[in-house]
Simulated scan of single mutants.
Amino acid sequence: MNQDSVYAIGDIQGCLESLQGLLEQLPADAPLLFVGDLVNRGPESLATLRFIKSLGSRVAVTLGNHDLHLLACAAGAGRVHKKDTIGEILEAPDCEELVEWLRRQPLLIERCGTVFAHAGLNPNWTLDEARALAAEAHEALSGDNWKTWLQGMYGNTDWTGELTGPARMRAILNAFTRMRFVDRTTGELDFEQKEDIGSAPAHLVPWFEFEGRRERDVTVCFGHWSMLGLINRPDVVAIDTGCLWGGRLTAVRFPDRRFFEEPCPCWADPFTFKKKKTGKHAS
């Protein structure tokens, strides 16, 4: 295995057929880094989670909001919604083993000169601050009291340094897994706007376009935002290309940024998800 490269893969959301097709394009021993949302809304969440876990040390994962939703449901802190496809995981005989593996995955990974996080890097944080907060949440979710930490996970709390307890955990998880737009003046995260950039109100900008962004000298690779499509800039690589919605599943090899794409069948109708915005964590 070449330890000097890594293949980052966008949001799978239970679309195992697409993942297996994409992997056929990659070297058999390619090191893989999934940027979150392994499960939910797609047709084979249980099989997808089992498959990725079976790849062992070849795989690295950053947690996404749908992965956290699964963990919260397993912890008794959330409920399975009508459009979710995680119920089969919660009812599986190996559920506990899968959850134990998933909850020990980090929120931030650094590899090949690149920062990987599901939703990106909060523009109001330095990289050192992001590292520390990701480590804090990782320690909590990996520990014996992980279920307690997830009891207050849902809600639109933005980060401030004064936060403590469940609100602090909620804000950290929100930033790493739910962030899209921020206020163009303050950088405050907005959790209501979820569409493409052209549909956003004038006071909002994508987090990576915020003029006060504190870390511009690092490359951030993220998923989470299928409406963006593929973005390949010196400082930002976005790789959620709408696998679930009949788009593509994308992999990018770092550090040379060679892209690989697998066309995907449409497993979810986007119009069925355009309900009144409620701030639910798994959106």
Score class of each variant (00 low, 15 high):
Gly143Asn: 10
Val80Phe: 06
Leu133Thr: 06
Ile89Phe: 09
Ala132Phe: 02
Ile89Thr: 05
Ile86His: 02
Thr272Arg: 13
Gly42Asn: 08
Thr160Gly: 08
Asp144Gly: 00
Arg111His: 10
Leu19His: 06
Gln105Thr: 01
Leu22Ala: 10
Leu23Ile: 05
Thr177Gly: 08
Asp37Gly: 11
His281Leu: 14
Leu230Tyr: 14
Gly165Val: 01
Ser283His: 13
Leu150Asp: 07
Ala28Glu: 14
Asn232Phe: 00
Gly10Ala: 03
Ala238Thr: 03
Val220Gly: 03
Pro31Cys: 12
Gly78Cys: 10
Cys15Glu: 02
Phe181Ser: 09
Glu100Gln: 13
Phe210Ser: 09
Ile109Ser: 02
Ile52Tyr: 03
Glu88Trp: 00
Phe222Cys: 14
Gly14Lys: 02
Trp146His: 11
Leu249Pro: 15
Leu16Gln: 05
Leu244Lys: 09
Thr164Leu: 10
Glu88Leu: 07
Gly152Gln: 03
Arg184Thr: 11
Asn122Phe: 03
Ile89Cys: 12
Thr177Cys: 13
Val218Cys: 12
Pro106Trp: 05
Pro43Phe: 02
Arg253Trp: 00
Asp144Leu: 06
Arg131Thr: 04
Ser45Ile: 11
Thr148Gly: 04
Thr148Lys: 15
Arg214Thr: 13
Val236Ala: 07
Ser226Gln: 12
Glu136Arg: 13
Val252Gly: 11
Leu90Glu: 10
Asp29Arg: 10
Ala268Ile: 07
Ala135Ile: 11
Ala72His: 07
Arg168Gln: 11
Ser5Trp: 00
Ala92Leu: 11
Thr160Arg: 13
Ala8Met: 09
Ser226Leu: 01
Lys275Asn: 12
Pro166Asn: 11
Pro255Asn: 09
Glu97Pro: 01
Asp94Ala: 14
Leu19Gln: 06
Gly279Tyr: 10
Cys243His: 09
Leu63Val: 09
Asp190Asn: 15
Ser199Phe: 00
Tyr154Ile: 09
Asn232Met: 13
Ala137Val: 12
Glu97Asp: 14
Glu215Phe: 00
Gln13Gly: 08
Leu230Met: 07
Gly229Phe: 04
Leu46Glu: 08
Leu163Tyr: 13
Gly14His: 04
Lys276His: 04
Thr157Asn: 07
Ala119Ser: 12
Phe273Val: 04
Gly279Pro: 09
Asp183Met: 02
Trp245Arg: 14
Asp67Asn: 07
Glu139Gly: 06
Phe51Gln: 08
Glu195Lys: 15
Phe208Glu: 08
Leu55Tyr: 11
Glu129Thr: 14
Gly42Tyr: 08
Pro270Asn: 08
Trp101Pro: 02
Ala92Tyr: 08
Met227Leu: 12
